[in-house]
Simulated assay, not measured.
Amino acid sequence: MNLVEEVRLNLGHIELAAHLYGPEDGLPVIALHGWLDNANSFARLAPALRGLRIVALDLAGHGHSDHRPPGTGYTLADYAHDVLHVAEQMGWQRFSLLGHSLGAIVSVLLAGALPERVERLALIDGLLPLTDEADNAPQRLGEALRAQLTLADKQKPVYRDPERAVLARMSGRLAVSREAAELLAQRGLMPVPGGYTWRSDSRLTVPTAVRFTLPQATAFVRRLACPGLLIAADDGLLAPHRALLNELPIQVQALPGGHHLHLDDATGATSVADCFNRFFAIS
């Protein structure tokens, strides 16, 4: 039987919720989900991965993890800082990272910044952060600041029942299957007067204040010192960037499916698991 353990990790500056999978003596892996998802993103995949001790986090502001304090935000560097503290708390000097989408981006940034800490990178349909031209930086910061000022006046959607929330998640910006939406809703919804709403911090929807330029972003990938495998979904977010991917020092495996191919159905989860089981079995 595949068992999952619910834990909370007090990092000092924030408390994060997580799921633990696999044997205690397995290879240490920290799993990071995508934007507005939660640890249930790995509910299909993690039990199918062999010989790994997986800590699947709810990233800050997501799922059952704490939100960041007022006056702060959700930068990629802050996420990387959290992951490093999780590794410290687990006693892992070296560890591997399993990341989807936003989680894959954070994984690459951390592995590029501290290559001595990361053993392997297993990535799903995510690699580089969204980039921008240097000349656009002032306008982007202005848009973010204006959005922050008006955020307090915005209300989260309230759904009369979980079914309506599931339907909304299925047709969201990053659409998922019904089964995937149900899994994410199990961990992502909370009761409020009048029904249910998402637990995620509203600040996660504010435009990013600062973006890397493309040369800055690719510098992190070029600095990787560990083996890496990127699963690129045929109908995912990376499909238009295959030429760039071929120029970077990381193995790429294309698989059928959409952006959430590891969660949408059992077939996709099995395909991804087969690739990653071979990848982690290499000595």
Rank of each mutant, 00 (worst) to 15 (best):
A77Q: 12
A77T: 09
D78H: 10
A80H: 05
A80M: 04
H81L: 08
H81E: 06
H81F: 01
D82Y: 01
V83I: 15
V83Y: 04
V83S: 12
V86M: 02
E88I: 11
E88Y: 11
Q89W: 00
G91E: 02
Q93H: 11
R94I: 01
F95D: 03
F95S: 04
S96D: 01
L97W: 09
L97G: 03
L97V: 09
L97D: 06
G99L: 10
H100K: 10
H100T: 06
S101R: 00
A104C: 05
A104R: 10
V106H: 07
V106L: 12
S107E: 03
S107Y: 08
S107N: 01
A111T: 10
G112F: 05
L114Y: 14
P115I: 03
E116K: 07
E116M: 06
V118C: 10
E119P: 07
R120K: 08
R120H: 02
L121P: 13
L121V: 09
L121F: 06
D125M: 12
D125Y: 10
G126I: 06
G126D: 02
G126M: 04
G126V: 04
G126P: 12
L127N: 06
L130Y: 11
T131G: 04
T131D: 03
D132C: 09
D132L: 08
A134G: 04
D135W: 15
A137P: 05
P138S: 01
Q139V: 14
Q139A: 15
R140E: 00
L141P: 10
E143R: 13
A144C: 14
T150N: 12
L151R: 14
L151F: 10
L151D: 08
L151G: 00
A152G: 13
D153Y: 07
K154P: 00
V158S: 04
Y159G: 01
